[in-house]
Design a protein around this nucleic acid. Structure first.
Length: 237
DNA sequence: GACCAGGCACATC
DNA sequence: GATGTGCATGGT
């Protein structure tokens, strides 16, 4: 995809910042400041998938408590979650919040997983990225961010994960217009970066890091490693 | 007590 | 198709 393609399809992305220099500069600045993030936290492919669902709109420390409960109950497996009563599973994941909603989502996901991969999660990699992404999005409770997190961090497939921090950092640094939606941000990143799974992995994790520390809903950006980059600090979100 | 956190589906207009 | 709302715990 060339530059004109990007401008044509992504009218919410500013032309003057269309070169990949700004995006790479932002990445390098974050990496030089924070170093590697070693994402995703999780010991197994299945744990990463579960974590991606549990962390929806939720602080990661709460997700850790829920995952620990699952491990302690010997319940962090496809088969056990599939068979477990709703109320029992909800009780285990209670610390992650929205526990009734997330119980349904986890079960919808493990049901899909059982039908499409069984215990052989690696077999999912035989699908193309776009095909697998579509299948995941068809599961109730798996939205774009969760699907991309599963694809990138659990399965090592080359897709960029966009989240609230990505949006906030990119709008505040004027890389995209506030009206840009999920797919426009994802396309923007994937068109302007080398297709590199480790780069996608690290970049998203670094955006979460800087977002947590500095890029709050109400700007408090003093001390941010990105403060010398173009930045509308007074912008009100 | 208010705000925030690694979303998503669904109802309503 | 845009916008609003429910879902919930736990840390700061």
């Amino acid at each position: 995809m060339n530059m004109w393609g990007i401008i044509f399809f992504n009218w919410h992305i500013r032309k003057e910042t269309m070169s990949n220099n700004n995006l790479n500069l932002l990445y390098e600045t974050l990496y030089n400041h924070y170093g590697p993030q070693y994402w995703w936290p999780g010991d197994t492919t299945f744990e990463i998938m579960v974590g991606a669902i549990l962390t929806q709109n939720t602080n990661w420390t709460n997700v850790e408590k829920a995952i620990k409960n699952l491990i302690d109950a010997d319940a962090l497996s496809l088969e056990v979650i599939n068979k477990m009563e709703h109320d029992r599973l909800a009780e285990l994941i209670r610390p992650a919040g929205y526990f009734n909603v997330k119980t349904k989502r986890l079960k919808a996901f493990t049901e899909w997983l059982a039908q499409n991969a069984g215990e052989d999660l690696e077999s999912l990699k035989s699908y193309s990225l776009s095909s697998l992404r579509e299948q995941l999005l068809a599961v109730k409770g798996i939205g774009k961010e969760t699907a991309d997190s599963i694809l990138l961090y659990a399965l090592g497939m080359p897709t960029f994960v966009v989240d609230t921090y990505t949006y906030r950092v990119f709008t505040r640094h004027q890389l995209i217009e506030p009206e840009a939606d999920y797919d426009e941000l994802r396309d923007f990143c994937m068109w302007n970066l080398e297709e590199d799974i480790q780069l996608y992995n690290e970049f998203h994790a670094l955006l979460v890091m800087v977002g947590k520390n500095h890029c709050k809903p109400k700007p408090k950006c003093q001390g941010c490693p990105l403060e010398h980059l173009p930045h509308e600090i007074e912008m009100d979100f």
